[in-house]
């Protein structure tokens, strides 16, 4: 099953709506609770990142029987140094983002923690594509 959602840049009031919809769907599909939590936490971080830092983009979720692939693709402005962005505590967040409780430089490391396979393709003045793969492990949350 493939689902595609459009992310509006700067729309902090609605940040999390996509993750909330996907969570409801995963529950309906009886995906194991522990896997739902990993997928949703990573998706939510990616969604907030896209609202906060990008010029907008799309999130696509491919939900299959044994695995899920979540891809977040924006139209820029890109991450000049992905390695640096993966460092815990490193952040370019504005004060507005920090007031929302984000921008502590934990987003990408957090995504990495919850995914089984993670690929980030980006660069200065380029789109950013974050591909997150999850293999269901079963078990409670």
């Amino acid at each position: 099953m493939r689902l595609t959602y459009v992310v509006t840049p700067g729309d902090f009031a609605n940040a999390g709506k996509i993750s909330s919809s996907v969570k409801s769907l995963l529950k309906q599909l009886n995906i194991p609770p522990g896997d739902i939590k990993r997928i949703i936490v990573a998706l939510y971080e990616a969604e907030v990142n896209m609202v906060a830092h990008s010029y907008g983009g799309e999130i696509t979720c491919d939900i299959e029987a044994e695995q899920a692939l979540v891809e977040a693709l924006d139209v820029g402005p890109g991450i000049p140094d992905v390695g640096l962005a993966m460092t815990e505590g490193w952040s370019t967040a504005t004060s507005e983002i920090r007031e929302l409780g984000f921008g502590a430089g934990m987003g990408l490391p957090n995504i990495k923690k919850h995914t089984d396979e993670l690929e980030i393709v980006s660069g200065k003045d380029s789109p950013t594509k974050i591909s997150m793969k999850f293999y269901y492990r079963g078990g409670p949350s």
């Binding site: 902090f12 009031a13 940040a15 999390g16 993750s19 909330s20 969570k23 609770p33 939590k37 949703i40 936490v41 939510y44 907030v48 007031e99 929302l100 409780g101 984000f102 949350s141």
Partner: peptide, 17 residues
């Protein structure tokens, strides 16, 4: 337990069960 009173506090709770 938080002093952050905005939508994201509720959303974060939702995502973290």
């Amino acid at each position: 337990i938080t002093g952050l009173s905005n939508n994201q506090a509720i959303r974060t709770a939702e995502m973290s069960d």
